[in-house]
Simulated assay, not measured.
Amino acid sequence: MKYRTLGKTGLKVSVIGFGGIPVQRVTAGEAEAIINRALDLGINFFDTARGYTDSEEKLGAVLRKRRKEAVIATKSMARTGEGMTADIQKSLKTLGVDYIDLYQLHNVKDKDALEQALSSGGALAVLKEAQKDGVVRHIGITGHVREILLEALKEEDLETVQFPFNAVEADGAQELLDLCEKRAAGIIVMKPLAGGALRKASLALRFILDYPVSTIIPGMDSIEQVEENALVGKNMQPLNADERKLLDEEAGLLGAAFCRRCEYCRPCLQGIDIPMIFLLEGYYTRYDLKDWAVERYRGLQAKADACIECGECEDRCPYNLPIRRMLADAAKRLGQ
């Protein structure tokens, strides 16, 4: 496994890290095997969050036993000092550790949220105190809106930035990459496979490693995925012309208005698994697996037409997708 420096934190992190969202879908025993295999293959950067249900718990159960091998990153949606204080303590307890290597302001997506977090009594002030106390070693920010992250980087105390970057969303990222380099901010890439929409995982990861990023955090919920992704970080082979063409063709099929499976839309009060429905629709429309997608759609407990159009999912979507309309379209295609 190859390693890079996480910006001005000075931490040496594996170029392939571990995204902690998918471990919510596996049992504790399965998660233990997956995480241990990642560590065995040299993956040392693990990203989770307070909002990822039992992800902190599952990662902590393994990582606290192999603490010296792991760089643990978590994050909180809290913007107030009071909220952040509570979340730091919850993270320490749930992970079962004495300190957290990187604590991040999670999914800051508008100016009001950024200003609140950076205010004198806000979340950042509490993180800086926790840093002085040694329970938080480094501080970062995550988000999906580049303009907000560019503004946030004016704050010197933010040492890392985590944002989506992949073969589909490469346009416009250079300004943020350049500013990160200027500010010596560590770059953590989320959604490297565009939320699973890019099926050629190896090519998608190798594409990103050509850029000066610190680590890439694909979500993994199987040992096979861990082994495949770790191999990319070990070999570090740049794409050749034919491979780049294949990836460009796949990215071109996706366009811009598609679900990245970030799962911020969940839970749906009607029980609709929104990311799963859009994943199945992708198989139906992009990969010509119509019968397969329809069959699995029929097995879902709540179908797309159960949507009552409350709009809560759209309020939470960081990509501002018209989810209600997209669900209606999916119902027409898949509900045959």
Rank of each mutant, 00 (worst) to 15 (best):
1 M>F: 04
4 R>P: 07
5 T>P: 08
6 L>E: 09
7 G>V: 06
9 T>H: 13
17 G>K: 08
20 G>K: 03
21 I>E: 09
22 P>Y: 01
25 R>E: 11
26 V>P: 00
30 E>A: 06
32 E>Y: 03
36 N>C: 02
43 I>W: 00
43 I>G: 00
52 Y>C: 01
56 E>G: 02
65 K>C: 04
69 E>G: 02
79 R>I: 06
79 R>P: 05
81 G>M: 04
85 T>E: 12
88 I>S: 02
92 L>Q: 08
97 V>N: 05
101 D>Q: 14
106 H>A: 07
109 K>R: 13
110 D>N: 10
111 K>I: 09
113 A>V: 05
116 Q>V: 07
119 S>H: 12
122 G>L: 14
125 A>R: 13
125 A>W: 13
126 V>C: 10
129 E>P: 07
131 Q>Y: 14
136 V>G: 08
141 I>N: 01
143 G>F: 01
153 L>I: 00
160 T>G: 10
161 V>I: 07
162 Q>F: 03
164 P>T: 05
168 V>P: 00
168 V>D: 01
169 E>D: 15
170 A>V: 13
176 L>E: 06
180 C>S: 13
182 K>P: 06
184 A>S: 13
186 G>F: 15
196 G>E: 07
199 R>Q: 06
200 K>T: 00
204 A>N: 00
211 Y>I: 05
211 Y>L: 07
212 P>I: 06
215 T>S: 09
215 T>K: 08
216 I>H: 04
220 M>D: 01
239 L>A: 01
242 D>G: 04
246 L>A: 13
249 E>M: 12
256 A>W: 11
261 R>D: 15
263 E>C: 11
265 C>D: 03
270 Q>S: 14
274 I>D: 10
275 P>Q: 12
279 L>R: 15
279 L>V: 09
286 R>Y: 11
287 Y>S: 00
288 D>R: 11
289 L>F: 13
290 K>I: 04
292 W>H: 06
294 V>S: 15
297 Y>W: 11
301 Q>A: 15
303 K>H: 15
303 K>Q: 14
311 G>T: 11
314 E>D: 04
316 R>T: 04
318 P>M: 03
318 P>K: 04
319 Y>E: 12
322 P>R: 03
322 P>S: 04
324 R>E: 14
325 R>M: 14
325 R>T: 14
331 A>W: 14
332 K>G: 02
333 R>V: 11
334 L>P: 10
